[in-house]
Design a protein around this nucleic acid. Structure first.
Lengths: 348, 348
DNA sequence: ATGAAAGCGCTAACAA
DNA sequence: TTGTTAGCGCTTTCAT
């Protein structure tokens, strides 16, 4: 494998000259550049990222920290779509993306990434009530961007939806359709997304003169099965809800399956509204009414902020909010059934 | 940020002693180890991966190469599930996973990863008829594992399904149900998966005395819309198929949507069988009959082979085949409808 | 416009 | 058992 020295001797120059040509320094004569580039080509030279990183102290890579216990991560299109946005931005700027499924010891992984300088910046996916990762990164003063709402004082940027408002609007939609007993199906209760969405849900109820009840709110894991189980619990209530707001589409699908199994007709006997608007919301049967949060855009914005942060060299604290919108389809009963093509919104 | 030298002076030893303690060398006295570890702790030391990588020539990272033009990648649970398996294995052994969405210039990305020594091994997702990545890696003699069928001579391991046999069985299933005009809905035609599955499909037809026809085979991109469009084309035929084998579940969903929009009843008027058995196959309505390929297992096996390969230090060429199975649900008409709970196979 | 030399933080061969 | 030394491949002063 050719090193910079090999190139240097082939081109009859010093290693530093080659290095300058690599950086396209203006203080190298065109003739020399030509000769060096030829040698570069001939030896099929590629810089060793370690050697370069050791001296520049830059990895040209960003890390995505997948929170511990997030086995759901890869199974939820929501996260995956965000990740795709992030890595797209990174790639376009020539940066690599390092994945870290932190599993148990989040700290160890973080240390390897940050202190070990494997990456130049970190993207935090989601925030929890008391988040060690956030604390650790704040302490280390490391470039980072949070995809979620900052709960504590942070010295870095964040990108988020207005989840309170979004859940508020979705609930209002159900209230306007005449529902009075509306259930809430949430993910882990210590995730701030869940906290915010349940808050918006309650706010809408209260404004409508309905007292929120704890037994109408179940929280579960972020999987289809979580939604299934949660829905079963809600349906078991003596005064079962006539409508349900699920804080994630995958949960909504589980809820739909539970309802179907027990023979409830959707949306006549049970209205369901989901969150995130994953692709399959559209092709589900009935198609799922959902709050579109623009996951991909969320990822792109986060990626951009992170690169900006890294390149700025100094702490940046922008907080961007990505707009949401309620996509009304068939599962909530606002539309009449059988209008698949219209509700799909796809054009060909 | 503390370096090994700082630790050394604090513990009153040399840098190499610290290095040995880090590697838990048996030739260091317990007392010294204790002292060094204390200093390590006190300074919150973490090795610089670049410095270490520069001398050991090891990155402790594996790369996943996402083929160019694979924007579908992140939207298809199939790939994502494999990736999850791979990165799970890597993490357990303390390795990082570097993602590379190669987009256009696959070569450039590969060079940065391989020649730049950013990763110690590469996982190739899928194989194409004439695959530059495979060629390049073979030439470089770089540790790698192919997730797919090797089309050319390769000097590394691979993990794959027996796609010909799987498609053969799936088609047979439809034939046994009485179908005689069976369509094939494939992904990109230069992917070997597509090639293999169409071959199995044709083989089954021929064996049943039916001549495969080109117009019954459409190939499209790996997205729901691809399936939608392909299905539209098949349904437009004067002697439209009564059954369709889709080479991917996402395609099958698109096909289902097309059929639903045109008012065809599934499975009575149109039977559909998918491939890969993604999670939503089960909760679709009607639930989708699909060939389960054990995506996660595929990823785990690939990850294991890759680490084995890297650690062995010498080229290894094992070729593992992961078993498949046909999961019969409602979309093919083999079961009567309305048996959701039974067909779901989930237990609580 | 170019080269020589130092050094990034670490490991490993060789000495002691 | 521990220390000394060299060197991994690169960038970057400082000379020239």
């Amino acid at each position: 494998m050719a090193t910079i020295k090999d190139v240097a001797s082939l081109a009859n120059v010093s290693a530093s000259t080659v290095s300058r040509v690599l950086a396209d320094s203006p203080r190298i004569s065109p003739e020399t550049k030509r000769r060096v580039r030829e040698a570069l080509e001939q030896l099929d030279y590629h810089p060793n990222v370690f050697a370069r990183g050791l001296v520049t102290n830059m990895a040209r890579a960003i890390g995505i920290l997948i929170p511990p216990g997030m086995n759901e991560f890869f199974q939820n299109p929501f996260f995956v779509e965000m990740m795709s946005g992030v890595s797209e931005v990174a790639r376009e700027s020539g940066w690599d993306t390092v994945l870290s499924t932190s599993a148990k010891n989040e700290e160890e992984v973080l240390d390897r990434m940050i202190r070990g300088r494997r990456v130049d910046g970190i993207l935090l996916l989601g925030s929890r009530k008391d988040d060690i990762a956030i604390r650790k990164i704040t302490e280390a003063n490391f470039p980072a961007v949070l995809l979620g709402r900052p709960n504590q004082e942070i010295n870095f940027s964040s990108v988020n939806n207005d989840n309170v408002q979004a859940a508020y609007e979705a609930t209002q939609h159900l209230l306007q359709l005449g529902h009075e007993r509306i259930g809430f199906l949430g993910g882990y209760s210590d995730l701030l997304v869940t906290v915010d969405r349940v808050q918006g849900y309650r706010k809408a109820l209260l404004e409508w003169g309905i007292q929120p009840e704890e037994r109408m709110e179940v929280s579960s894991f972020f999987l289809e099965q979580g939604g299934y189980l949660g829905m079963m619990r809600l349906l078991a209530l003596s005064d079962r809800p006539t409508a349900v707001l699920a804080s994630d589409d995958v949960l909504a699908f589980g809820a739909m399956r539970a309802a179907a199994e027990l023979g409830y007709a959707l949306p006549e006997e049970l209205a369901i509204v989901g969150f995130n608007d994953i692709r399959l919301a559209e092709i589900a049967n009935p198609s799922l009414t959902s709050v579109r949060v623009h996951m991909h855009e969320l990822g792109v914005a986060a990626g951009e902020l992170l690169l900006e942060q890294i390149q700025a060299g100094k702490p940046l604290t922008k907080h961007r909010v990505i707009q949401h919108e309620l996509i009304v389809r068939n599962s909530c009963g606002a539309r009449r059934m059988g209008q698949l093509s219209q509700s799909s919104g796809l054009k060909f």
